Simulated assay, not measured.
Amino acid sequence: MDVYLKFVLVGFSIALPVGAITVEMTKQGLKNGFFHGWAVGIGGMTVDMLLIFALYMGLAKILSLSYVQIPLWIIGAGFLFMLAYDSIKNADKDITLVGKKVNKSLFKTYLNGLLVAISPGNLVFWVSVFGAVLADSYTQTKSASFIIAAFGILTGILLHDIGLLSIVSTTRKVMNRKMIKWTSIIAGILLFGFACYFLYEFYLDIQLFL
């Protein structure tokens, strides 16, 4: 139980800083309500769970290689540029005010969460967080601790998502269409900034090989 609670706090703490997933969740939560925001979070957690399994099977050693990380920065930047463009271009679209019927597909919103989560930043996060646990995870006696730690971190992230979207849902009740539109534009600018950061990391890694 101590291991579980410890990693619940780790997961919650890691999820607190504003990242690309948080930006997309907030945007969708304001435009279409709690469940659409949560669909983004579930999309991100789907990738997280797949990464947990992959790391347990030894993916951490591969991801730690510099020449593997370099193309991932470009791929991640491409995804974020695409989402940033969509967020700004369609800022005035797919907005559902409180009390109105939501027409946007939950599955499409879920896919947005998947796209944001498939980024180098997310991969590096899992490698770093599980680094200490992975060293012992290949022995049968320690595999249970790894699984408990994994569920603890996922629980922490889930608690963060629910808390954030509860605040967003309450705020949404007092926002009009114009305010939500500008929130979407700001979210697009932030996503564009994250994409530029990925390109900067790509540049730094390339310099190491020159």
Rank of each mutant, 00 (worst) to 15 (best):
Ala91Phe: 02
Gly41Arg: 04
Tyr85Thr: 09
Ser119Ile: 03
Gly78Ile: 05
Phe130Leu: 11
Ile74Ala: 15
Ala117His: 07
Val98Cys: 11
Ala144Cys: 03
Ser169Val: 03
Gly99Trp: 11
Phe146Asp: 01
Tyr110Ala: 01
Ala77Val: 11
Tyr138Phe: 10
Lys108His: 13
Met45Ser: 14
Ala77His: 09
Gln140Asp: 04
Val102Glu: 00
His36Lys: 09
Phe35Ser: 10
Ser64Leu: 13
Phe146Ile: 01
Asn122Phe: 04
Gly58Ser: 12
Phe151Thr: 07
Ile52Phe: 08
Arg172Gly: 05
Ile52Asp: 00
Gln140Thr: 07
Ile95Tyr: 14
Gly43Ser: 07
Asn90Tyr: 10
Gly113Ile: 09
Leu158His: 06
Ile42Thr: 00
Leu55Pro: 04
Ile153Val: 15
Thr139Leu: 09
Leu72Ser: 03
Leu115Val: 09
Gln69Glu: 14
Phe151Gln: 08
Lys61Leu: 05
Leu154Val: 13
Phe130Tyr: 10
Lys100Thr: 13
Leu97Trp: 09
Ser105His: 15
Gly121Trp: 00
Ser66Ala: 12
Leu50Asn: 07
Val168Leu: 10
Ala60Arg: 02
Thr171Glu: 06
Gly37His: 00
Gly58Met: 10
Phe79Gln: 03
Gln140Asn: 05
Leu50Gly: 15
Tyr110Val: 01
Thr109Ala: 02
Thr109Tyr: 04
Trp126Asn: 10
Val68Thr: 07
Thr170His: 12
Thr155Gln: 09
Ile70Arg: 15
Leu63Ser: 11
Ile74Pro: 07
Thr96Pro: 01
Leu59Arg: 02
Lys89Thr: 05
Leu51Asn: 13
Gly131Gln: 07
Leu134Val: 11
Ser145Gly: 08
Asp92Ser: 12
Asn103Ala: 15
Ser87Trp: 06
Ile118Asn: 05
Tyr110Arg: 01
Gly121Asp: 10
Gly43Ile: 10
Thr155Asp: 00
Gly121Thr: 05
Tyr56Asp: 03
His160Lys: 13
Leu59Ala: 15
Gly99Cys: 13
His160Ala: 14
Ala91Leu: 08
Lys89Glu: 07
Tyr110Gln: 03
Tyr56Thr: 08
Ser145Asn: 04
Leu159Met: 09
Val124His: 01
Ala132Gln: 09
His160Ser: 15
Leu50Asp: 03
Val127Asn: 05
Leu59Met: 13
Gly58Leu: 12
Leu55His: 08
Ser64Val: 11
Asp161Trp: 01
Lys108Leu: 13
Gly78Val: 08
Gly131Met: 02
Val116Gln: 03
Val40Lys: 02
Ser137Asp: 07
Ser66His: 00
Lys173Thr: 13
Leu72Arg: 06
Ala149Tyr: 09
Leu83Val: 09
Lys89Asp: 01
Gly43Arg: 07
Phe53Asp: 10
Ile118Met: 06
